[in-house]
């Protein structure tokens, strides 16, 4: 179950690293790395094993760059730590965020009066199926349509003595 309110409202933990301070963090473990959505990931690749969590900034919910960044971190660069979509998302994007590799979304407390935890959860339940097979996730659209078709076709092939 993805958490919504990850960090206390004070925000940044003691050894959080903003991009500007990244170079000073050589050889340290990094609790939280904050990335703008136009980050050049090659700057951070060496450090990824030392990073426990990454917060990708969503400056506006209409700006979808963070989705691609998450995909790259997870699939091209093998990042396995906590990955958080941080900023102006709306519940209707929750499933997309998880499908692209985020573990959670962090939104401002003030936003959560309009977009309640229930609304976020309900948005996850909107779809059980997805056409993008590598983007199927347990919490959200869990079934790849193309895989399900294949399974159904295979099931039809097996000879069932009880079927007419």
């Amino acid at each position: 179950m993805p958490m919504l309110d990850l960090i206390s409202s004070t925000g940044v933990a003691p050894n959080d690293v903003e991009p500007a301070l990244f170079d000073a963090a050589v050889n340290q473990d990094i609790d939280a790395l904050h990335l703008p959505n136009d980050a050049d990931l090659s700057d951070y690749l060496d450090a990824l094993p030392r990073v426990k969590s990454i917060f990708v900034d969503f400056p506006a919910f209409t700006d979808g760059r963070g989705f691609s960044l998450a995909r790259l971190l997870r699939h091209r660069h093998g990042y396995e730590g906590l990955l958080v979509a941080d900023g102006q998302l709306i519940p209707d994007q929750f499933a997309f965020a998880l499908q692209c590799g985020f573990d959670a979304v962090r939104v401002k407390r003030s936003e959560r009066e309009r977009h309640t935890a229930e609304a976020w959860q309900a948005a996850l339940d909107a779809f059980d199926v997805t056409y993008q097979r590598g983007y199927a996730v347990k919490a959200g659209p869990a079934t790849s349509i193309f895989d399900a078709r294949l399974t159904a076709a295979e099931a039809n092939k097996t000879t069932d003595p009880f079927s007419a």
């Binding site: 979808g64 989705f67 994007q93 056409y131 993008q132 983007y135």
Partner: peptide, 13 residues
């Protein structure tokens, strides 16, 4: 059509 339907990564281009 199927590939592009609600593509999680490419719906906020």
């Amino acid at each position: 059509r199927q590939w592009s339907m609600l593509h999680p990564e490419f719906s906020f281009l």
